[in-house]
Amino acid sequence: MAEQTQGAVPLSAVIADAATGVALALRGEGDPYALSAVLRQSDALAPAAIRVLGADVLAPYAMDLPGAPAGGDDAEVVHQALTSFPPGADASEVSVWTYRGLVEASHTLLSASARDWPPPPDAATGWVDADPWPKLSHRVSQLAALALPGLAPGLAEQLTARTDDLARGFVRAVRRRDWLQAAGLGRWLARLPDAPESLGLDSGLAFVRHMGGDDPRVTLHVVAARRFYGRGW
């Protein structure tokens, strides 16, 4: 029976490190970003971490910056993630959508590599209209990577009709001290066109960052909102 050579390093830690690397790059700090440097192919958990972070592992490549574009190593490890962790037949909406987001981002940002990317799976949107706002908000926060510019345009358009409800979700998440949920929602609200003024989104994002910044994924969301949509301080 093969041993888990990475048993000493939990997946959550690998994810946290990767999130830190992405946030660093989005802030324009550190060495030029290379996914394959942050998540090495040789790391057994790299594909799993990529699957969880989804499109965000490619977010730095979405910045309009000169520098090395995504390389073949990046495409390799992303491809590994997509083939190793496809959504099952009974996969949740979030699972399908995050997978779809990673596929979309690969098509867009790893296009230079000649890979056969899996087709984006059909993803249902009925829940956008149907979910009560607390449930909707929790779900949407888990899809924060899809708030990257240009991703999931259909979903973004549908979410626009529920902007006020997502703002209510932000309020609720902050009150619960669920900083990751708040950050994910704040990131979506940064993209949607009509986040209510009275929400104080910019202050809210800064607040969440300071209250929840121990979690690199929180930082990633807040930094992404700033980098791509200019929201938050």
Binding site: M1, T5, S12, A44, Q142
Partner: peptide, 30 residues
């Protein structure tokens, strides 16, 4: 390099991945 195709590991890891993608909402801290 590990044998990434070992079925038991893969299944467990896949489950962990799904759990991290969509964790249940934590209780509020008020």
């Amino acid at each position: 390099v590990t044998d990434r195709t070992a079925p038991v590991e893969t299944a467990a890891l896949a489950a962990e991945v799904e759990g991290l993608l969509e964790p249940a909402e934590a209780d509020g801290v008020f």
